[in-house]
Design a protein around this nucleic acid. Structure first.
Lengths: 225, 225
DNA sequence: GTCTATACAACGATAGAC
DNA sequence: GTCTATCGTTGTATAGAC
């Protein structure tokens, strides 16, 4: 059951394709350029990196870069597309059956926290936020492929748990949103801005706290939790 | 009691001053330039706006802009400083006594949601995120003046409520973090990326849901909630 | 302090040989 | 496809007159 829902939503998630994903896989040299650009954008931001630097870092000439990508913008789109694919392949599968609802939520929580807080993910997100106004379609595509697809999937998971009698929730979508907010919120901004706060709880504490709070609100006393 | 804590933490919050706040107030013309720059940065981002545009929008020559601000970067710092001051004056005072704990949390939740989601706030945050790597001190200053100060204040509020017997919480700081995450998380990303999601609950629903969840976990049955 | 005009550097993108 | 060399533009920042 869970797998059926999973497959359905996973299909829905990848149904939306970012521009450069519609084509075939990148060639080796294109991938090499994309990887170099990703590293530089990650470190210095989009505007601060020149095509000369990218070419040099990738070990090719600038003309070669332009042979594969029409513009700096399009190169950026390719980077984001790759990140979306990784996201779909990494976090999505974590939402499936587990021994009990507590274990499942904990697992999901850790998957979300660890993936979202990974430097690579944050770097991409930072650039999307930064350049969002200039790339509205890209921002939308990323949101659809990533956060929105995941929230739908998590909502399906909760609905299923409700039907099994493991949870009691009036508004599953709201519950999914709140859970995501709890897991992500406390550490997200610190990582995003690179401003660690020693007073903040660590990821483990946050996930456990979120699961605990979630179950106290929505857990069914009788059910194994 | 609450006011004593409030005053103390408010002082602590403004104790940290961003560079340009250490000096006196801006002159009228400087403020005029800052305001023009803020509007342009808000709309187009930092890198995409030239000093020529700023000068034109402010109705002065470029040389005049440079007479007041040494560089584009410093002009940006001035903008953020202003935003921090507004934050301290707007959200912080919301954390104080209310008829009961539920009303207090709801009020805080709405204040956080409405301020954080305001276009002006989001625009500043977007730029901070975008240019964070290039302005590490600025990002840190903003975090200290804003989110961190608020979380401390909220934690103090919770501790006080615990002492009054209105709440029962083991880790108040964690609870404050989770509450902020719930209130902010669901809508934050959508506004930040300008990708509205019709499936998402609205702000009212989110705040009420968060308060409900918080009280179910930490509320004291006997106390008036 | 404020303006006009300009110096100087850097960037994105391309032309043309191989 | 890949390179070297370069074009045209744009941007930050400043010089000098008032």
């Amino acid at each position: 059951m869970a797998n059926a829902l999973l497959e359905k939503d996973k299909a829905a998630a990848t149904d939306f394709l970012l521009p450069s994903e519609t084509g075939a896989e990148l060639t080796a040299k294109a991938a090499q350029i994309v990887e170099a650009a990703r590293g530089l954008f990650t470190e210095h931001g989009f505007a601060a990196v020149s095509m000369d630097q990218i070419a040099k870092s990738a070990g090719v000439s600038k003309a070669t870069v332009y042979a594969y990508f029409d513009s700096k913008e399009q190169l950026f789109v390719a980077i984001v597309s790759r990140a979306c694919r990784t996201y779909a392949e990494t976090v999505m599968p974590e939402v499936r059956d587990a021994p009990d609802i507590r274990a499942a939520l904990t697992r999901i929580g850790h998957a979300v926290a660890s993936f979202l807080l990974a430097p690579r993910t944050m770097a991409i997100y930072r650039i999307i936020v930064a350049e969002g106004p200039r790339f509205p379609d890209l921002a939308r595509g990323w949101y659809e492929s990533g956060p929105r697809a995941f929230k739908r999937l998590l909502t399906s998971f909760l609905v299923e748990a409700i039907e099994k009698g493991q949870l009691k929730i009036e508004n599953p979508r709201l519950a999914a949103e709140l859970f995501c907010g709890m897991v992500r919120g406390p550490l997200y901004m610190q990582v995003l801005l690179n401003t660690p706060d020693p007073e903040s709880p660590d990821a483990e504490t946050v996930v456990n706290g979120a699961v605990e709070m979630f179950l106290r609100s929505f857990g069914v006393p009788g059910a194994r939790s």
